[in-house]
C-alpha cells in the first residue's frame, strides 16, 4: 500500500466513512508491514481493535434472553392495543356511575309514581257543607249525639255504683243484726 492510499484510507477511517473491506486492508497493513514511526499510534489502535474483535464472545443464552424480552414486549404491545389501560379504567368507572345513576333514577321514578298514586287514592271527600253555619249546627248535633252516648255509659256505671253501694249497705246491716 503506497503512502497516498494509506493516508486517504486513514482519513476516511477517522471520518467514519470506510467500508469493511477498507478497514480489513488497513488492519492487514498495520499487522504485517514495517510501520513508519509517525504511524505507530495508528498501528496500536488497529491492533487493539483486532484483539478485542477476536476476544468478545456472545454468550449463548443471550440470544434466548433477547428473544424472550422481544416476545414479552410484543405481548404487552398487543394487550395495550386491544384494550388500552386507560380505556378499561374509564369503562369500569362508567359502569359504576351508570349503576349509581340507574338506582337513583329508579328511586325517583318510584317516589314519583307513589306520590301520584297516593294523590289519586286520596278519597277524602269535599266538605259536605259549603255554609259554615250549617256545618257548625251539624257539628253541634254530632257532638251532642256522642256526648249523650258517653253519658249513657257513665250513667250505667253510676247506677252500678249505686246498686253496689246498696248491696254493701244491706250486707253490713245484716252483719250488724247477726
Amino acid at each position: 500500500m503506497n503512502t497516498d492510499e494509506l493516508n486517504r484510507l486513514l482519513e476516511k477511517f477517522y471520518d467514519g466513512e470506510t467500508t469493511r473491506e477498507e478497514e480489513l486492508k488497513l488492519e492487514r497493513f498495520f499487522s504485517s508491514e514495517p510501520i513508519p514511526a509517525h504511524l505507530q499510534v495508528d498501528r496500536e489502535l488497529f491492533l487493539s481493535m483486532k484483539k478485542h474483535d477476536s476476544q468478545i464472545e456472545v454468550p449463548q443464552e443471550l440470544s434466548g434472553m433477547l428473544s424472550d424480552l422481544i416476545d414479552r414486549c410484543e405481548a404487552e404491545d398487543a394487550q395495550t392495543l386491544s384494550a388500552p389501560k386507560g380505556f378499561s379504567i374509564r369503562f369500569k368507572a362508567f359502569t359504576q356511575q351508570f349503576r349509581f345513576y340507574s338506582a337513583a333514577a329508579s328511586i325517583l321514578i318510584l317516589l314519583g309514581l307513589s306520590l301520584t298514586l297516593f294523590k289519586m287514592n286520596d278519597t277524602r271527600p269535599r266538605d259536605t257543607f259549603s255554609d259554615p253555619m250549617e256545618a257548625y249546627l251539624e257539628t253541634q248535633r254530632i257532638l251532642s249525639y256522642v256526648s249523650k252516648n258517653m253519658q249513657a255509659g257513665e250513667k250505667a256505671v253510676a247506677l252500678y255504683d249505686t246498686n253496689l253501694k246498696k248491696v254493701h249497705q244491706v250486707l253490713e246491716e245484716k252483719r250488724i243484726i247477726e
Binding site: 266538605d127 256545618a135 257548625y136 257532638l143 256526648s147
Partner: peptide, 30 residues
C-alpha cells in the same frame, strides 16, 4: 251516607255562635 267536616270548615265556624253554644263547649272541642 257520609258527612265530612274538615278542619278548614271548623275554622270558619261563626265565632259568636261558638261562644254562645252554652254548656256544649264546641270551640274548645273542635
Amino acid at each position: 251516607t257520609v258527612v265530612y267536616i274538615s278542619k278548614a270548615m271548623m275554622k270558619m265556624f261563626p265565632a259568636k255562635k261558638v261562644a254562645l253554644a252554652g254548656d256544649m263547649n264546641v270551640g274548645s272541642i273542635v
